[in-house]
Design a protein around this nucleic acid. Structure first.
Lengths: 352, 352
DNA sequence: AAGTCTTCGGAGAACGTTTTCCCGAGCCAC
DNA sequence: GTGGCTCGGGAAAACGTTCTCCGAAGACTT
C-alpha cells in the first residue's frame, strides 16, 4: 500500500512516467482521455509524490526554517501559530529551531537548516549584534525575513511592530488619564525592541511633565527585573510605571502588591506585547497589542515574494501599527483599595 | 561557494566519488593518506551533504514531525522546547504542525508530513476518539509516539504524566492542611487527561470526607470555565477547589476575587500542569508539576529505539510521576484578608 | 500537395547520494 | 606456485522525480 511511485502508476495506466508526471503536476497539457486514465490509476493506487526526489530534482524542498530565541517566551507561541498557518496555507512545511537564547546555537541551527535545503528562513534573532554574521551569511544563500527584532541595517527583509507608535499610544493614554510623574522600566542592551521602546519613551515623555528629570531603570525583559525595578524607582513616588514589556509589568505589579501600593489607585502600570498573561493577571495589564496575525501574514507574503519573483529587490523593512488595550492597571481615578474588577475584565475593548 | 557536491570534492582530491562518500560517512575503512586528502579537500571547498539526495537514496530524512493541538496552549511551549532540543541532539530536525484543535486539520497535517517522508511522528492528539483513525494509520507507516493525551489503547507508544498520582498528591496535601469540603472543577469529554484526573479525584476524595456528596462541575480546560464553575459550586461553600488544570484554577481565582472570597483563607485552590502563569498569578497557584524535560527525553528515547532497533516490540505506555508545588493558593490557616505574599513567592520549593 | 506548426506522448538524462559489485595488489598457508 | 584471503579503491546502479529532447500525426498555410 505504501510508497507507490510514478513508475507503478504509469504501468497501471499503460503510459509513460513522463506523462503521469505531467498530468499530476499539470506541467503541460495532456490529452483528456489519457489524463483521466492517469488520475484514476493514481487515485486507485493511492499515489503520493516523494518530496525527497522532487527536492533533489527541483532544487526546492517546500520547506521553511523558523529560528527563534526561546519558544517559552510567552510572546512567541501566538506568532509561531500564525506563521505556521500562513506558511502551510502556501503549501510549505516549517522546520522549527529553538536556540535557547544562545547565538552560537542559533548559528548552528541556521547552518543545519541551510544544509537541509530549506527554501527560506524566518529568523527572530537572539541578539542584534551577535546574530548578525550568521544571519547575513544565511541571507546571502536563501530568502530570509527577520521578525520582531532587528539585526543591523540592510541585512535582510524585516517585519516588526512599530515600537515607537506603540509607546506613543501608551504615553497619550497616560496623559489623557491625568498621570504626570511617569517612570520607565525598560531593558538595557542593543536589541531593537529594547532600544526603540526606550527611545520612543524618552522622546515622548517630555510632553507629560516638561522639565522633570528623566526617571528610567534598565534591566532585562523579565518578571524578576520588573520586581526589582520597582524597588529602584518607587522612592520617587511616580504615578505611572511604563514597562517595556508585559513580563516587566507583571513583575512590577507583584512587587507593588507586596508593598501594599494600590494599582491603579496610587500608580498606573502599563506593559507591551499583550501576552496572554496580561489579560489574566489582576489587575489586568493595560498594554500595547502587537498585530500578531498581520505580522505573520506580512512575513509570509514577503517570503513568498522573494521565493517566486526575482529575489533582487532592495531590502524591505515593514513596520505595523499596534493598538492600545486598556485594562484595569491604568484605570482613571484614585482608590485606596483595589476595586473589584469589572465583570468583562478579560475582554476589554481595544482602543485605538 | 555554495552547493559543493561529492563529485567536485572527488575531482579536487583525485579520487572517486565512492571513496569520498565512504570517508565522509565513515561507512567503510579507507586508507589513512587518502582519507586525509579527502577531508582536506572537503573542508577547503566547504562541502555540505545534500539531505535531499541522501533522503532519496537512503529512505530516511533525518526529520521528525511534531503535531500538536495548539501551540498557544500554555503548557506546550515548554514541551516543544524540550522535544526539539532532545531531537536535535540526535541530529534530527523537527517539522512543526499546529492543528488549531481541529481533528480534520490534524489528519491533513499528518498525511502531509508522511508525504514529506518524516522518519517518525510525535503527536499530541486533539481528541481521544476523533484523532484515532489518522493516528493509527500513521502509526502503521512510521514509528509514532503519543504525548500528553492518549488515543485509545494500543494505538501507539505513549508518554504522559501519571495523572492519577498527581491528583493523589493534591488530595493528600489538602487533607494534610485540614481541608475537608472539597470540590472538583474539571473538564468533560473523553480526552485522557480530563478523564484520568476526574477518575483519580473521584477515587481519592472519599478519604477526605467520607459519605459526603460528590461535588463536581465539568466544563473544559479554560479560564472562562474556571470563572463560570465557581458560580456553579460556590453556593455549597467548599473549603477547597481542586481544578483539573491551571487555567481553570486561574479562572476560579479571578472569580473568587471578584466575589471577595479570601484565598487561601476561606477556600484553597489547586491546579495541574504548572504552567508559567501558575507561579505568577497572585496568589500563586498550588499545582502539580509535570516533569516536562523527562517526558520529552522519554519520548525521544522511545522514538530513537523504534528508529534504530527493530520496530516490532509491543506498544509501550510510559507514565512519569509528577511533583506537587505548593504555593500561596493552598496555604494553611484562615485569614479574612489575603495575606501579603511572602518574599520568595516565585520559587516555592517543590514538595514530593 | 509540399512544407510548417501545433499537439500528444515517449525515451532518457539529470539531480547527489549510498551501496553493491568488481578488480588488482599484497599476503598467507598449503 | 596456486588458491584463498583481506584491503584499498573505482564503476555504476539505484532512489523517484522533472524536464529536455525527439518523433509521429494531424492541421494549417501557401
Amino acid at each position: 500500500m505504501a510508497d507507490v511511485t510514478l513508475r507503478e502508476v504509469a504501468r497501471a495506466c499503460g503510459c509513460s512516467i513522463a506523462t503521469v508526471s505531467r498530468v499530476l503536476a499539470g506541467t503541460r497539457p495532456v490529452g483528456a482521455e489519457t489524463a483521466r486514465r492517469v488520475r484514476e490509476a493514481a487515485d486507485a493506487l493511492g499515489y503520493r509524490p516523494n518530496h525527497a526526489a522532487r527536492a533533489l530534482r527541483g532544487h526546492r524542498t517546500g520547506t521553511v526554517g523558523l529560528v527563534l530565541p526561546q519558544i517559552t517566551n510567552p510572546f512567541y507561541p501566538a506568532l509561531v501559530r500564525e506563521l505556521t498557518h500562513a506558511l502551510h496555507a502556501d503549501g510549505r512545511a516549517v522546520l522549527l529551531a529553538d536556540c535557547d537564547d544562545d547565538p552560537a546555537a542559533e548559528a548552528e541551527y541556521v547552518a543545519d537548516l541551510l544544509g537541509r535545503r530549506v527554501d527560506a528562513l524566518l529568523v527572530i534573532p537572539v541578539d542584534e549584534e551577535r546574530s548578525r554574521d550568521a544571519v547575513a551569511a544565511a541571507a546571502a544563500r536563501v530568502p530570509l525575513v527577520l521578525m520582531d527584532r532587528g539585526c543591523g541595517p540592510g541585512v535582510a527583509d524585516s517585519v516588526a511592530v512599530d515600537n515607537a507608535s506603540g509607546m506613543a499610544l501608551v504615553l497619550g493614554h497616560l496623559a489623557a488619564t491625568g498621570r504626570r510623574r511617569v517612570c520607565f522600566l525598560g531593558a538595557a542592551g542593543t536589541a531593537s525592541a529594547a532600544a526603540e521602546r526606550r527611545g520612543a519613551y524618552a522622546a515622548g515623555v517630555g510632553a507629560l511633565d516638561p522639565g522633570a528629570p528623566e526617571r528610567v531603570a534598565l534591566g532585562d525583559f523579565s518578571v524578576e527585573w520588573g520586581r526589582a525595578a520597582v524597588d529602584e524607582v518607587w522612592p520617587a513616588r511616580p504615578d505611572a510605571l511604563v514597562c517595556a514589556n508585559d513580563l516587566i509589568a507583571i513583575g512590577a505589579l507583584q512587587r507593588l502588591q507586596q508593598l501594599g501600593v494600590a494599582v491603579p489607585g496610587e500608580v498606573a502600570v502599563t506593559g507591551f506585547d499583550d501576552i496572554p498573561m496580561a489579560a489574566l493577571s489582576s489587575p489586568g495589564v493595560t498594554t500595547v497589542r502587537q498585530p500578531v496575525p498581520e505580522l505573520a501574514a506580512e512575513a509570509a507574503r514577503l517570503l513568498g515574494l522573494r521565493l517566486s519573483g526575482d529575489d533582487t529587490g532592495p531590502r524591505r523593512s515593514i513596520r505595523l501599527a499596534p493598538e492600545l488595550v486598556v485594562r484595569e492597571s491604568s484605570a482613571r481615578g484614585r482608590t485606596a483599595i483595589p476595586a473589584p474588577a469589572p465583570a468583562g475584565r478579560g475582554e476589554s475593548a481595544p482602543v485605538t
